[in-house]
Design a protein around this nucleic acid. Sequence first.
DNA 1: ATGAAAGCGCTAACAG
DNA 2: CTGTTAGCGCTTTCAT
Lengths: 354, 354
Amino acid sequence: MTRVVGRSTASPVPRSADVARVAGVSRKTVSRVLNDEPYVSDEVRRRVLEAAEQLGYRLNHAARALASGRNRSVGVVALGTAGYGTASLLVGIEKAVRDAGYALRVINTVDGDPKRIAGAVTSLLEQGVDGVVISEPVVEGEVSVRADVPVLFLGAPPAFTGGRTLTVGVGAHALARAATEHLLDLGHTTVHHLAGPGRWYASKDRVEGWRAALAARGAHEPPVLEGDWSPASGYAAGRELAADSSVTAVFAAGDEMAIGVIHALREAGRRVPEDISVVGFDGNPVFAYVTPPLTTVRQPFDAAAREGIRLLVHAIEEPGTDLPPAGEPPVELVVRGSTAPPPSQEGQTVPRTT
Amino acid sequence: MTRVVGRSTASPVPRSADVARVAGVSRKTVSRVLNDEPYVSDEVRRRVLEAAEQLGYRLNHAARALASGRNRSVGVVALGTAGYGTASLLVGIEKAVRDAGYALRVINTVDGDPKRIAGAVTSLLEQGVDGVVISEPVVEGEVSVRADVPVLFLGAPPAFTGGRTLTVGVGAHALARAATEHLLDLGHTTVHHLAGPGRWYASKDRVEGWRAALAARGAHEPPVLEGDWSPASGYAAGRELAADSSVTAVFAAGDEMAIGVIHALREAGRRVPEDISVVGFDGNPVFAYVTPPLTTVRQPFDAAAREGIRLLVHAIEEPGTDLPPAGEPPVELVVRGSTAPPPSQEGQTVPRTT
DNA sequence: ATGAAAGCGCTAACAG
DNA sequence: CTGTTAGCGCTTTCAT
């Protein structure tokens, strides 16, 4: 049975002074023990811990924050969507932050609107966070707030590290490139791309990776289609793609959009992967169980979150110091059933010229 | 361009005393204005606000919390999974909490282990939250912590409201029942059930709803299969189900498990929905775009979160008062392509013996 | 309608 | 190794 015991009405909440009295030491010594500071004899430490335990003492973080000026908490501005990607990133952040001994405060913004992000950051700053992480920032507009703490942009390209702002990406460029190359390797003449909204960094990175892969092979670059990450937008794009008989390979910037594309394609009588290959982006494991199983690239959410928080905590605790070097997470291509060689090899050698 | 302005090195962070000085009032008056307290002339209010704005004043929540004993924040213990359901619930909670004027602190627990939940609650209490929400609690074990603030169990059955603990469910029983009845209405003799892990409340509720629907129609109750919410566990269950030629309808306790079931069924040569109908549980919109589109019931995550937080905030701000009445969210069955009448009517009248 | 004084519970800076 | 003395920045009395 799950049960939560209510506070016993009589006893007042114990303070550190109570612990000190019971342990027979000063308040400062209690403080030392609770903060794992050196210069406390094991004997005293034990007594203090015992007294705290016995009294059911609970540290008051607000008082500590006020006195020390440090909060041991970081705030995150996340996207208020329940999508696999954003949720995975948040889970990764939470774990990394907790492991670092910090508490987590979260504010969602509907759509990454810069004004709202600024408002969220201000609110977090008022709450006294020691650091801020902005998860999956969009590109448009300018977030201007006076931040006296380090700010981490997670999921943005390594572009604007300056002052106390840090950036950690997820290697989207390399992932997009790998996805595109996989298709090219299969023998496709070129690869169409369904991108995310243009105002997102995440979209831009993937477009560029795709473009780089195409350019490296001298492949023709078809016009970019744009979706909004939703399967519905993928479906809409899929209908367009189905109408173009030259399309044999599609790289969608998100798994869900890829699923929408495949659905539209099949509805239009195009087989996947026999007629058209599709690869997604994210790595949601559930899509290994749809028909056809989706080939995709896996985003290293946990690794990126861990690395980002490591940097952020370093910036908080050792300001001025050089940041420890980062290790790029490996590029993971997950080949499943939605990709195959193109229907025939004609397209490779006989370019269509009206 | 996204940019965060670093703090100007020279100026010290302004305090409420600075605002008071600039506005030519006392600190207490500044406090009154900032807290929307009455008995402040409009003229003075305006001046204070202006001074605060001009100085770039930011309230210190830690100091306020220490002085007032209230934090205006609630803590949530969530499941550390990026699944659609848990993520949706968290998004709903965040919004409801923010709308109520509270800040949100999050701690994830890997698997709902009672010990860890207790630890998480303690940690939140130390952080000074005014209320705690435990999202999707499991059933096993006992969470015992001395909580001096109201605790909301979100996603649990309306069972253990007592002391300062509240409970708000998502109407899982009714949803499961609706899913099962949909299948029965289609003409299926009975419905097999793939449940979640037994130690979850969420599982129990759904099993009971399914059981109630069966009983109401006098349908035979087949043994329950158990998965772990993952598509892989659904796939495993699907293989078992495929081997039993008597099954024509399956109700899976989660969309992802349903997807796994369908995959296994089709792999075994059983058509969905022609041979076997499958309905899921959750309402993730992406599964409208797989083949076949998944029939499911939609969980009212937002409504549940909103209602739960409303109750929690009420308990925080008006302790002792009766709680305002709640409105049950409507049951939403989303019929798509994975359900159909059974292959023939034989099964209905000729039970297999031997 | 506004102000003065007194802490909230803890840690910092110094002493010993 | 341990204790003393001052606050941290705000809100609370209680005056006025």
